[in-house]
Amino acid sequence: MDIRVQQQDFDLGAEYSNIADDTAVGAVVSFVGKVRDMNLGQGVTSLHLEHYPGMTEKALHGIAEEAIERWELQRVLIIHRVGLMQTGEQIVLVITSSAHRGQCYDANEFIMDALKSKAPFWKKECTDSGEHWIEQRQSDRDALHKWE
Rank of each mutant, 00 (worst) to 15 (best):
49 L>Y: 06
96 T>P: 03
92 V>H: 08
26 G>Y: 08
81 R>L: 09
39 N>G: 02
41 G>I: 04
131 E>A: 09
11 D>Y: 00
105 Y>M: 12
132 H>D: 00
22 D>F: 14
75 R>I: 00
38 M>I: 12
11 D>V: 06
34 K>Y: 07
115 L>F: 10
85 M>W: 07
141 R>Q: 11
87 T>R: 04
32 V>G: 00
36 R>K: 14
126 C>N: 11
94 V>S: 02
101 R>S: 05
39 N>A: 12
69 E>L: 14
81 R>M: 08
16 Y>K: 15
131 E>K: 08
77 L>D: 01
127 T>P: 12
82 V>N: 03
109 E>F: 08
47 L>S: 05
63 I>V: 15
116 K>S: 11
99 A>Y: 01
39 N>P: 10
108 N>L: 11
66 E>G: 05
87 T>A: 10
36 R>F: 09
88 G>D: 10
148 E>R: 15
114 A>L: 10
72 E>L: 05
4 R>C: 10
84 L>N: 08
79 I>S: 05
18 N>R: 15
110 F>M: 04
97 S>R: 09
5 V>R: 03
33 G>T: 09
139 S>Y: 07
83 G>I: 13
25 V>A: 14
75 R>K: 15
27 A>R: 04
63 I>K: 07
13 G>H: 07
88 G>Y: 09
148 E>T: 11
21 D>P: 03
20 A>Y: 11
71 W>T: 01
56 T>I: 07
37 D>L: 09
93 L>R: 04
114 A>N: 05
43 G>A: 10
59 A>I: 13
